[in-house]
C-alpha cells in the first residue's frame, strides 16, 4: 500500500525543449510529504477519506475534479484546518505539533490568492521576506518571476498572469524546500498557463525546490509532474509516476475521429473485443480494444467502419494523462 512515488515522466515546458529534467535526478530521496489515514468531515460531508500518500522530492501533481478534496488536503498539510483522524508529515515535520516550522520551510500559492491591493509589489515581497527572516532580496524574487520591470506597481493594477507571478514570487520568498500550489493556472488563458508552466520548470531547474501542485488541469500536470495522484470524493484512487500511470491505464485505448460517431458506437455495440468507452469530441469516440496490437486494432476498426459506411478520419492511441484519468474515474 505504501509507495514512494518517484521517477516517471519528466516534465517538459511546452515550446521549451531546454527545460527537460534530468532522469534519475539526484534530488530524489526522503519523501517531502507523508500522509497516513487522513480523514476530514465538514458538516457531515466527507472531504477526505482515509488518505494515504507518500510524495518524493520533485514535482508532484494532485489531480481531481472540483470538490474532490485537493484544497482540503493542502489546507490540512499547512495547518489551516485540523484533520478528524490521521497523521501527516511535511519535510519530516508533524503537521499538528510543528506547523510553524513547516510554514518556515515551505512556500504556498493558494487558489485565487488575495494580496493587499494597494501595496506595491516590491514592498509586499519585502514584507513577506522579512516575515520569513530570509536573506533573499526583493529584486532577486522579481527577477525570478519576470516582474522586475513592474515592481513599483500596486498589486491591484496587475493582470491575472502577473498576479499569479507575484503569487509564485511570494511563495519563494522564504527560500522554501517545498512549494504548495493550489490551481496555479486556474484563472489564466492558454498563453498565461504556458508561461507559468515554463516558469515552474525553470524554477525547478534553478533552485531544486520540490513542488506539490493541486489541479484539475491534466494537460499542464502531464507536462510538469514526475508523479501524480488522482483523488476523487476524498479518496486517493491512483498514484504513481506519471508515465507509468498513463501506460497502465491507456493500453488498448484509441481515439477515433469519424464521419458518424453515433453509427460507429452502434456498430461496435455487439463486438465483444471492442468496447466503446465514450465520446471524446464532437466527431470523436474513444474505443477500448482488448487483446489486439495497434495495427490489428486499426485494421479491425477500419473494416467494421467501412461495413457501416463510416469514414474514419484519424485513428490515434489515447495516451495522455487525461485519457488515463478518464479511465481511472470510469473504473472507480
Amino acid at each position: 500500500m505504501w509507495i514512494i512515488l518517484s521517477g516517471g515522466r519528466e516534465p517538459v515546458a511546452e515550446g521549451c525543449p531546454d527545460f527537460e529534467l534530468p532522469r534519475g535526478s539526484s534530488r530524489m530521496g526522503e519523501s517531502v510529504v507523508s500522509v497516513r489515514g487522513l480523514t476530514k468531515h465538514f458538516n457531515g460531508v466527507q472531504a477526505l477519506a482515509d488518505v494515504h500518500l507518500e510524495v518524493a522530492p520533485g514535482v508532484f501533481g494532485l489531480i481531481g475534479p472540483n470538490g474532490a478534496g485537493k484544497t482540503t488536503l493542502l489546507r490540512v498539510l499547512l495547518g489551516l484546518i485540523r484533520p478528524d483522524k490521521g497523521q501527516a508529515k511535511v519535510l519530516g515535520l508533524d503537521i499538528s505539533s510543528q506547523s510553524l516550522q513547516i510554514r518556515q520551510r515551505v512556500g504556498v500559492l493558494h487558489e485565487k490568492p488575495t494580496y493587499p491591493p494597494f501595496m506595491r509589489i516590491d514592498n509586499y515581497l519585502k514584507m513577506v521576506t522579512e516575515l520569513y527572516g530570509s536573506a533573499k532580496t526583493t529584486q532577486k524574487l522579481l527577477d525570478l518571476v519576470g516582474l522586475s520591470d513592474v515592481g513599483w506597481r500596486q498589486i491591484r493594477t496587475l493582470s491575472a498572469g502577473m498576479n499569479q507571478r507575484l503569487g509564485i514570487a511570494q511563495s519563494l520568498a522564504g527560500d522554501p524546500e517545498l512549494v504548495f500550489m493550489d490551481e496555479p493556472t486556474s484563472n489564466l488563458d492558454v498563453i498565461g498557463r504556458d508561461e507559468i508552466i515554463k516558469l515552474l520548470v525553470e524554477l525547478y531547474h534553478e533552485t531544486g525546490i520540490s513542488f506539490f501542485i493541486s489541479s484539475h488541469n491534466l494537460s499542464q500536470l502531464e507536462k510538469l509532474c514526475h508523479n501524480v495522484a488522482f483523488i476523487d470524493a476524498g479518496r486517493v484512487i491512483e498514484k504513481g509516476p506519471t508515465g507509468q500511470i498513463i501506460d497502465k491505464h491507456t493500453s488498448g485505448l484509441y481515439n477515433v475521429v469519424c464521419s458518424d460517431p453515433k453509427s460507429l458506437i452502434y456498430a461496435f455495440e455487439s463486438d465483444p473485443d471492442i468496447l466503446v468507452v465514450g465520446t471524446s469530441g464532437i466527431d470523436a469516440v474513444t474505443l477500448c480494444v482488448k487483446n489486439l496490437d495497434f495495427t490489428s486494432a486499426r485494421e479491425q476498426i477500419y473494416h467494421t467502419a467501412a461495413q457501416h459506411d463510416i469514414e474514419l478520419r484519424t485513428f490515434t492511441k489515447a495516451n495522455t494523462l487525461e485519457d488515463a484519468y478518464r479511465e481511472v474515474i470510469r473504473n472507480a
Binding site: 499547512l78 489551516l80 510554514r103 490568492p113 488575495t114 494580496y115 516575515l131 522564504g174
Partner: peptide, 14 residues
C-alpha cells in the same frame, strides 16, 4: 472572508 487570513497564516506566523 476575503482569504487574506489564509495567505497570512501560510507564512511562518504564530
Amino acid at each position: 472572508e476575503d482569504g487574506t487570513l489564509k495567505t497570512i497564516l501560510s507564512y511562518p506566523v504564530n
